[in-house]
Design a protein around this nucleic acid. Structure first.
Length: 528
RNA sequence: GCGCCCGUAGCUCAGCCCGGUAGAGCAGUUGACUUUUAAUCAAUUGGUCGCAGGUUCAAAUCCUGCCGGGCGCACCA
């Protein structure tokens, strides 16, 4: 069985398998000396995890799973936090801004936590990252840049860079503006006095001692070891050093980093390393085709998506066409839920080859759950809007007309979707409700209807209730019965349109409806 | 300047890697069901596949050039 999957994986066409094969050729089809293949994904802890972080981890995980299926070679995934980077500016959405102001320039791991719950700002955000990733059940190992630097895990490679300082610098220089060019040094010393990350020119280096001397802004000099966390590297050199020091085999990145990848790769080679296999994904756009950015708050957040749809649908979004700039806004959610359900439904019918192309194979690591398809999410959204209720039981009543054999127990996926649909109702449908008071004529009819409902049994048949409503309308002289029903919707449900009233009352409950009518007649505000 | 993505039905997009009678959802139209609507169900209209060349028996698909739309990098990470 395992061999079968492996054989199929050799020809599988979906992009994670193509990536897996690319990676396999990078490692010459064998387990690297370190005993595993290393996947890396980066994270900047100056902010909270966002949808791009999610996308990168999802996609990397998909490649990793495909690689495992293809080769069986052990692998690890490092979620690497650049928590030694200096604090550049004070973020908007945090308390204690004044305190942060005073700590600008210090490594994030040396800045106190503005939330006062962790030992540092970095530690706080790192923790949030871990919680975020754990929510989705990702398998990963967290790595902190600060710890790596301080514990000496980077020392050998740092010394290697010192030895090749000139060559490394030459790679970066052409990319800099003239003013930066004159003072550039890939190493940034941590000031022993202030604790900040300094960006100052180097004036001398001693390869044997492993030290660098810098000219300080005040004219003085500072000589520090490049090892042990006394210096950190600037961005592109840092990335290259990490690839070499950890022997990273695979790392993907957005198209905004294309040039960085190129430069870091050159540096990595200078160090005698081999850059990881890579993959460039496109950035996400908002509804108007503009780039999504945290600061602008356009596009969608992970939380927003997960309020209206299950995470699998978001994973599907990430699986689809990673090389295409895709728009990410509310309207794409329902389609991805329905596509996911469709793929899930098709999976068990498909041949093994086909299953490896099926996104749910990648979303569920080869073992998607089984549940008979019932109704689409699109229909469910219409239903919740038409039924005008956020009562799960009432909704299930309507659902059973479309999917007679489904229940919350036999269809847990559908049951979850009902909850998402209710969120949609609460956020988009209910706020649009406008209740009006009944006219005198309608008031009379409503009183009559209340009396009728009083007489009938709680479990009366929907069509019988519909008959009674119809009769009341006729008795009260509504020429067009449509106006009578419209009045019911507008006064009782706050909408111009609604469900078939007989069915609605049967599901909503005769007594509950009676209560609703009484409140309307009493002139109560029922909008809340 | 360098680089990436996109252009297919009114709208949003799939199909392109690996050439073989152009697809989906929504919108539209018609019908069914309903003792009000909506919903639902069924059927159906709708496309010079951005333009021009090339390769081929055959091009939405491969190649070249152009046009149009958008984004990224060139300050920081």
């Amino acid at each position: 069985m395992m061999d079968t999957i492996r054989n199929l994986a050799e020809d599988a066409r979906s992009w994670p398998f193509e990536e897996a094969r690319k990676l396999l050729s990078r490692v010459n089809s064998q387990t690297p000396e370190k005993g595993y293949v290393l996947f890396e994904t980066g994270y900047g802890p100056s902010g909270l995890p966002h949808i791009g972080t999610f996308g990168e981890v999802v996609r990397t995980t998909m490649v990793r799973q495909s690689f495992t299926a293809l080769t069986g070679i052990p692998s690890r995934l490092f979620a690497f936090s650049d928590d030694m980077d200096g604090l550049r500016s004070v973020p908007d959405n945090v308390p204690n801004k004044k305190m942060l102001e005073k700590n600008i320039g210090k490594p994030l791991s040396a800045v106190p936590d503005p939330f006062e719950t962790h030992e540092s700002f970095a530690s706080h955000n790192n923790q949030r990252l871990r919680e975020f990733l754990d929510t989705f059940g990702f398998e990963y190992e967290f790595q902190s840049a600060t710890e790596c630097y301080k514990e000496g895990r980077f020392d050998a490679t740092l010394l290697h860079i010192l030895k090749n300082l000139e060559a490394v610098t030459q790679v970066i220089l052409p990319t800099l503006g003239p003013d930066r060019r004159s003072s550039y040094c890939p190493f940034l010393p941590i000031c022993p006095k202030t604790g900040t990350v300094l960006q100052v020119p180097a004036i001398a280096h001693d390869v044997d001692a492993g030290t660098l001397a810098f000219r300080l802004d005040d004219g003085g000099t500072l000589e520090v070891p490049v090892t042990g966390g006394h210096c950190k590297l600037q961005w592109k050199a840092d990335w290259a050093m990490r690839w070499k020091a950890l022997d990273v085999d695979y790392e993907m990145s957005g198209k905004d980093l294309i040039d960085s990848v190129r430069l870091s790769s050159r540096i990595c080679k200078i160090l005698g390393g081999r850059p990881p296999a890579g993959f460039t994904y496109e950035l996400f756009l908002d509804e108007n085709g503009e780039k999504i950015s945290k600061s602008r708050g356009n596009g969608l957040t992970v939380d927003e998506w997960l309020r209206y749809a299950p995470q699998e649908s978001l994973q599907l979004y990430m699986f689809n066409s990673p090389r295409k700039a895709k728009r990410l806004y509310f309207d794409v959610i329902p389609r991805h839920v329905d596509d996911y359900l469709k793929f899930l439904n098709d999976f068990s019918e498909e041949s093994s080859e086909k299953q490896l192309e099926n996104p749910t194979w990648h979303i569920h690591d080869g073992e998607p759950p089984k549940e008979d398809g019932h109704i689409t999410f699109g229909l469910l959204l219409n239903l919740v809007s038409a039924c005008n209720t956020d009562d799960k039981a009432v909704l299930w009543g309507f659902i059973s007309r479309y999917a007679a054999d489904a229940t919350a127990e036999t269809a847990p996926i559908l049951d979850n979707l009902v909850e998402y649909a209710i969120h949609y109702y609460q956020d988009f449908v209910r706020p649009e409700k406008v209740y009006r008071a009944p006219s005198d004529k309608e008031r009379g009819a409503l009183e009559d209807l209340a009396a009728k409902l009083q007489e009938i049994e709680e479990r009366t048949d929907a069509s019988e209730i519909q008959n009674q409503i119809y009769k009341v309308g006729k008795d009260h002289g509504f020429e067009n019965l449509r106006d009578w029903f419209k009045a019911l919707y507008e006064t009782l449900l706050g909408r111009e349109q609604g469900p078939r009233m007989g069915s609605f009352i049967a599901l909503y409950g005769v007594n509950e409806t009676l209560e609703l009518i009484k409140r309307v007649l009493a002139g109560e505000d029922i909008s809340s």
